[in-house]
């Protein structure tokens, strides 16, 4: 879920992926993400739900940046920063983990 091209990173790349016990259910207007083992449930709406959907189809970060920036009429940098915030929040909630720490 990382792509250096859009983010002007000052820190090394991390490869985030979903945890082993993660499921999600999509409704038209929201996505419910469930981490069974950690007993965490998150309801995603708006940009977060759209982003989850795009990433789950394998879109690169730069594609997501392009889509989000077009959707909200925002500069790419702003879209990239919003995406990063979502990714961080999901990581903190235990929905995503750093690929380098798992086998």
């Amino acid at each position: 879920m990382n792509d250096e091209s859009q983010l002007r990173q000052t820190t090394p790349s991390v490869r985030l992926h979903t945890t082993r016990n993660l499921y999600w259910v999509r409704d038209a207007n929201f996505t419910l993400v469930i981490e069974e083992e950690k007993d965490v449930t998150k309801r995603l709406e708006g940009d977060a739900a759209a982003l989850w959907g795009w990433l789950s189809m394998g879109l690169s970060l730069s594609q997501c940046v392009r889509l989000l920036s077009a959707m909200n009429n925002m500069p790419s940098a702003e879209a990239a920063s919003e995406i990063n915030q979502h990714l961080r929040a999901w990581q903190e909630a235990g929905l995503l983990e750093d690929g380098s720490q798992t086998q």
């Binding site: 207007n29 708006g46 959907g53 189809m57 594609q63 392009r66 889509l67 959707m71």
Partner: peptide, 17 residues
């Protein structure tokens, strides 16, 4: 042109909502 489809669905649904 998958991006067109992904974008349109989310954008149009938002407008409908």
């Amino acid at each position: 042109s998958p991006e067109v489809v992904y974008f349109s669905v989310v954008y149009a649904r938002r407008k409908a909502e």
